[in-house]
Write a protein that binds this DNA or RNA. Structure first.
Lengths: 346, 346
DNA sequence: TTGAAAGCGCTAACAA
DNA sequence: TTGTTAGCGCTTTCAA
């Protein structure tokens, strides 16, 4: 435990203490080549004696390396994506000290070809790219090309697992589906039988298909007294979802509703209009102003969320680590599946 | 959208572009006094034209301000505190770029007098202190003294609300208790009546008392068909908790168990030994290797967690913001109440 | 109100 | 293998 020093030791102090030059102290400290083992040891001893800790700002400035990253998001989508973009800018600010600069680009929503060509025409000065991917052959090829030319690539929120991307930053969607299934099964504890409706954006989207898979898995294995209905696809559109929900609510034995994607407003309207909001257990995804409100008034029973801030920061950190060769801490980069009920709303 | 520049603009470039000196550009940029409005505008225009963004590492180096923070934790406690300490060191590393150095000190577990005197004898060179507090008059007075002498103080995990601390970094404990209550009530859906046992470390601890309050609130308001039993205090000790659990399990109509504090191993042993692990709904706190294992084998049904990493980083960020006068983002600093089930384990 | 210039602590090119 | 030295981009005296 060091008590008040008037001034923190600098590398210059270490060099003097070890009887070597500043450059040698630097080489020894950073494990650069061309230092005798004995000298290395003398420097290490001086470091220990002085309790030296490097000044990272000075190192960053002297090294003067900059990293340009681009984040590619679907344009004109829901509040989740809007929030994600804000979080990306915040993450960029936070990593500015380490020389990171982030641009955000938009491509047409979930159009694989548009996304692929956006990737193909990406300016070459980017050191890294984070992509909300669609798992499609052309997208995969475009990612692989980027990787081949030396750009670091991570997928964000939605993965392209067969591409050469270095890392996927997002939740485990089958597990998210299982979590939804577990909540549904447990919240339905009182009921002895009934049908459960499922609405998705599109099963052609990997994440939606995976969530459905996980949901089904839990319900069929552990709550087989309920019948999970086939998925209705509403393209995340409130109006289509409202129609689907209305159709489902026409069944008197409907006990549960799982919306895999966005467009919760439509479902809410149908549910409230039916007068069965309190009885039907509804599990939804993504915490937003809307789902928060629905949780508060007991229309939605549980929300499964992925934290956009974590995702943005993690993507930026992983890209930076790949660029500098630093280690990645898998634990820190694992995106959590958050559960929100009325009582633990942030 | 700026395309590839060979080199990023520096403040020197801005100064040249605006036809002023470096010093004036700096003064204008940072809203320092002594610049004519017209000059200010010229600099602003140059900044916009060049797309200038300050290099925070250079600013940090030139300013050369350092901040020394101390974190005061209870000694020899559970895995949560051990993890918290590791996270504090990580947070210190991350903020090193901004000139932050963090020390960790330990005091005897939950002994208010020991904590108070540790605070009273704290070296004066600390710019900030984060304290796992106990709400006790002497502790409060010691915190107030620190604040009076100009040290920034935040409470961490456990609060002393009537003290002059600038900020509390931790979860909303009544809400955590309500969340436990909601999970208990919903998971008990099938049962029509029964008793629920509650074990705590000590109701003299604010956080435990608050969780109990929240738990009771939800159960009495929304699930009044169950009887919540009086709290049994086990001082977070596995052996004592085992005895308490055993006593509770002697009641044939025990349907639920809520452990407000630590010492889950003891309860697990009693529960497994009784053969009723699958039938009794058990809600516990803090995700650890132990509770993770218990979730996996369906002994624990739900775990309420506070993320030690967030808490450590938030405390460090808040202290730094208070020292530099920067703004605090309440949303980012709000510590979440995390819910873990078997299926969303990280 | 403005400008010139000396660092902050480290890295890296070059010299020895 | 080691040393010398010129910056990195900004802040901050001190002078004008």
């Amino acid at each position: 435990m060091h008590e008040a020093e008037p001034r923190r030791a600098t590398l210059e102090d270490v060099a003097r203490e070890a009887g070597v030059s500043l450059a040698t102290a630097d080489r020894a400290l950073n494990d650069r080549p061309g230092v005798r083992t004995a000298t290395r040891a003398r420097v290490a001893a001086a470091v220990a004696r002085l309790g030296y800790r490097a000044n990272p700002a000075a190192a960053q400035l002297a090294r003067n390396r900059r990293f340009r990253f681009v984040f590619i998001l679907p344009a004109n989508t829901n509040s989740f994506m809007a929030n994600l973009e804000a979080q990306i800018h915040d993450a960029g600010d936070a990593l500015g000290l380490q020389g990171v600069f982030i641009d955000v680009r938009h491509v047409d929503v979930f159009d694989p070809v548009a996304l692929a060509s956006a990737l193909e025409t990406l300016p070459t000065h980017y050191d890294g790219a984070a992509v909300v991917a669609v798992d499609h052959p052309r997208v995969r090829a475009a990612i692989d090309d980027l990787v081949a030319r030396g750009t670091q690539v991570v997928t964000l929120v939605s993965d392209a697992p067969t591409s050469q991307r270095a890392h996927y930053v997002g939740i485990d969607n089958p597990a998210a589906g299982r979590t939804a299934g577990a909540l549904m099964g447990r919240f339905l504890g009182g009921a002895t039988r009934g049908r459960i409706g499922v609405i998705a954006g599109s099963l052609a989207l990997r994440d939606h298909a995976e969530r459905y898979f996980g949901f089904n898995q839990v319900l069929s294995a552990e709550y087989s007294r309920f019948t999970v209905l086939p998925v209705l696809e509403g393209r995340d559109d409130p109006a289509r979802n409202a129609a689907h929900a209305q159709a489902l609510l026409a069944m008197p034995d409907l006990v549960g509703l799982y919306n895999i994607g966005a467009g919760n407003e439509g479902i809410a309207n149908a549910l409230v209009a039916s007068g069965r909001a309190r009885d039907v257990v509804w599990i939804a995804h993504e915490l937003s102003a809307e789902t928060r409100r629905l949780l508060c008034c007991d229309v939605v029973d549980g929300v499964i969320d992925q934290n956009a801030g974590h995702e943005a920061r993690s993507a930026a950190r992983v890209l930076l680590a790949r660029c500098t060769g630093a280690a990645i801490h898998p634990d820190q980069e694992r995106i959590r599946i958050d559960i929100f009920l009325r009582d633990n709303l942030p």
